[in-house]
Amino acid sequence: MQNLFAGFFVSMFIHIGLVLSLSNIFSIDLLAFQADYSQPIPAYLVYEKPKLVSKKENKIFIKKILIEPNSQIDIKEMVLKADEEILALESKASKTTTFAQKKTNLNQQNQILLFSSIIEEQIRAVWKKPIVSEEFSVELILSLVPTGEILNVKVKRSSGSDAFDRSALIAVAKVRKFENLKMPAQLFDDNFRNFTLVFKPY
């Protein structure tokens, strides 16, 4: 009997391990931790509930975030404002826990999205890619401190071209410190202390 239990657990571990590692290899995001940066749909899902808050105001607010991520607006304040609004929405809405949970998740996704776009804009402004006819891509791992300063940068996956890799490293070296990255400590630790930057020419 004991043996069967052990066998069951071992097999379970094997299967979970296989599924997770395979999903990682084929970049299937089973755990849905990664935000899909190109499609900021969740933001609209929250605010398109017409009963809750007047629709107009919120849409404008969302646009503001998406269009001017690196302008000199105080992001922290905006994020807090967003938090407050979400809380207001929650109190008005039916107080089922799953619904509220969903919202905080979405809100966090929005914030990750926002800060990612802030990072992206700052890198993009200084990255001078060499002319390449083929589709190169290089992956770097960046380590930040909460002030936005870049502590360390490593090549995770080289593009195969020294010149292309170097152009990415130079872009990171030029930024040195990301501006406008004030965020809750938990959010920073979970997402931005170490993250991967992928450089693609097209």
């Binding site: 997770l20 590692s21 999903s23 993009r124 991967t196 930057l197 992928v198 693609k200």
Partner: peptide, 20 residues
Amino acid sequence: LILSSTYLSSQLRIEITGGS
């Protein structure tokens, strides 16, 4: 194995497409 795969897949990826 599980820990490492969850660690890797949960790390944030930011893509930069086309530069200055």
